[in-house]
Each structure stands twice: as C-alpha cells, then as structure tokens.
C-alpha cells in the first residue's frame, strides 16, 4: 500500500480530532455543571459567612448595635490587639492547648489498650465492640449534664461516694478548683471519645498482615516485643488518622464544657470555644468574638497541617 502524503494524514487526523475535542470539552465542563449547585450552596453557607465574619473581626460590632458594623479605620486591628492584651484570652488558649494535648493523648493510650484487648478476644467480640461504642451514642450535651451531676460538689455521685467511704469530710470542689475543673471536663471527654480511637485502632489491628507476627513467633519474640516492634509501627497511619480526627473534633468539647462549667467560675475552665461564645453571644461583642474565632481557626489549621504531614510520613514508613 502506498504511503499517504503526510499532509493528508495530518489533515485527516485534524479533521477527525475536531469533533472529538468538542466532545471532550463538553465532557470537561459537564461534571462542573453537575456540581455547580453544590458549590453554590457551599459558597453561600460556608464561604460567605467566613468572609463576613472575617470582616466583622475588624469592626467593633456588638449585637443589637448595627451602627457599630463599620470598620474603625483609625484602629483596624483593635480586636486583635485587645485579644493579645487580654489575660483571659491567653488563659483560654493555654487551657485549650493543655486540654487537647492531654485529652487526645490519653484517648490514644486508652484506645490503643482497649483495641489490643478487643483484638485478642475470641468469644463475644461483637457484643464487646457494641458495648464499647455506647458512649459514642450519647450527645455531648448529655455527657455534659451527666458528668456535671457526677462532679456536683453537694449532690454529686463522686463526692457522695467519697463521703460514704469516709474519705472526705467536706465536699471536693470538682467544678470550681484549679485544676480539678479542667480535669473533670477532660474525664467526660475521654469517656465519650476514647471508643472512637479504640474502634479505629481495632480496625487497623485486624487488618495487619499475619506474616510479620508469624516470623516474630518463630524468632521467639515476646508479646511486648511483638507489640512494640511490629503492631505499634504498623498501626502508625491508623494512629495518625485517629489523632487527626480527634484533634479536629475537639471543638465538640464545647458542649461538654458549656454544660459542666460554662468556662467558669471566674473563667477558670475557659477554653477557646467557650470564650468565643462568651465574647460573641454573652457579651454581645461579635467583633471581638470573630477575631478570636479566626485566631482559633489559624491555630487549628496549623495543627491540621502538622498532622497531615505526620500522616504522609508514617505512610512512607509503612
């Protein structure tokens, strides 16, 4: 067969490609068309409020005083400046960091422990798994009421028990004293959310390959050595996922803290979220509350980036 001239081939290719390209352009735009309503809704309910509250963070806006909605150009950063000068802001921030660090790490340790126990149970595992998930079924607000009552100084079950056992004569001020107030809230959160960590790590443990364990068995490794040098490193990605989910989910602790102490007394158990609520809704100082929200968002983003970097690293190791 004689070879066709190059130009003819090119022309033919071009001609046949044209309608195809038109088709692919349609194909390129069609998915965007389909998701446009979702994007529009997200812009409306997420982006617009975000931009608006960012604007508010530069205004002295107070609820019920619409005349304060304009930016004060002589002192644009007034809210951010006042936050940095505010002792309660720093206390709330410090409390939040301690709260997240202690709570998430204790949840990890307890969750890991529970997951390893559950992984080794041979009978009734499904019942145990269901039981361990019971705290997750409670709304945080109910957990707050429950633990608020447990730790109530005068009628609470904890002081009642200690008094009946003769261990105390006068009530312990669980929700008042430093650091008992923070510890009480942390216990409530740990009770509620440790099962989340345990379930994630149990899933990870059950998905691990058996060969490394069989090889370790042959080499005579002890149970601790198998956990320390095989299970724990291989669970790395799952641990990071659990830590990330819990850290980002920490804002749910707002409900528990609000019900148990409301950030008080005298701001002693103030967390970033309770303080935002206090500033914006109790004190009606929406400008200052918005500024604090953005500071919290920036810090949360930094945490998120850090955890995701750790996640990627642990995947490489695995």
């Amino acid at each position: 067969m004689a070879a066709e001239p190059l130009s003819t081939v090119t022309q033919a290719t071009t001609a046949s490609a044209r309608p195809k390209r038109r088709g692919s352009r349609t194909a390129t735009w069609f998915p965007y068309f389909l998701i446009a309503p979702a994007i529009a809704i997200i812009l409306l309910v997420v982006l617009f409020p975000l931009i608006y509250s960012f604007y508010l963070s530069f205004t002295p806006y107070r609820l019920l005083k619409p005349e304060t909605l304009a930016i004060r150009w002589d002192d644009v950063l007034i809210n951010y400046r006042r936050l940095l000068e505010d002792d309660i802001f720093w206390r709330a921030f410090g409390n939040t960091i301690i709260y997240v660090a202690v709570t998430v790490n204790l949840q990890l340790v307890l969750g890991l422990f529970l997951s390893q126990l559950l992984a080794r149970v041979t009978r009734g595992q499904s019942i145990l798994r269901t039981l361990i998930m019971v705290p997750m079924m409670f709304a945080p607000i109910l957990v707050g009421f429950q633990y608020g009552w447990f730790f109530n100084a005068t009628v609470g079950i904890v002081n009642g028990g200690l008094r009946d056992l003769g261990l105390i004569q006068t009530p312990i001020k669980w929700l008042v004293d430093v650091p008992l107030g923070m510890i009480s809230i942390m216990i409530a959160d740990i009770w509620m959310s440790t099962p989340v960590v345990a379930i994630i790590l149990l899933a990870g443990t059950l998905s691990l390959p058996s060969e490394p364990f069989e090889a370790a068995e042959v080499d005579g490794a002890s149970p601790w050595q198998k956990f320390r040098f095989i299970t724990y490193p291989m669970l790395g990605p799952f641990i990071t996922i659990a830590l990330t989910i819990r850290s980002l989910d920490m804002a749910r602790a707002f409900d528990i803290a609000m019900i148990m102490t409301g950030g008080g007394p005298a701001n002693r158990t103030e967390l970033a979220w309770t303080y935002i609520n206090r500033l914006a809704l109790n004190d009606r100082n929406f400008g200052l509350g918005s500024a604090m929200s953005f500071v919290t968002v920036v810090v949360t983003l930094v945490f998120t980036l850090y955890f995701f970097r750790q996640l990627i690293k642990s995947r490489i190791v695995y």
Partner: peptide, 10 residues
C-alpha cells in the same frame, strides 16, 4: 468559711 455551697458559682 464554708457557709455557701462550694459550687454555688454554677
């Protein structure tokens, strides 16, 4: 003095 309940602030 312990005259008021310890968690009166709640």
């Amino acid at each position: 003095a312990g005259t008021l309940p310890p968690d009166m602030t709640n």
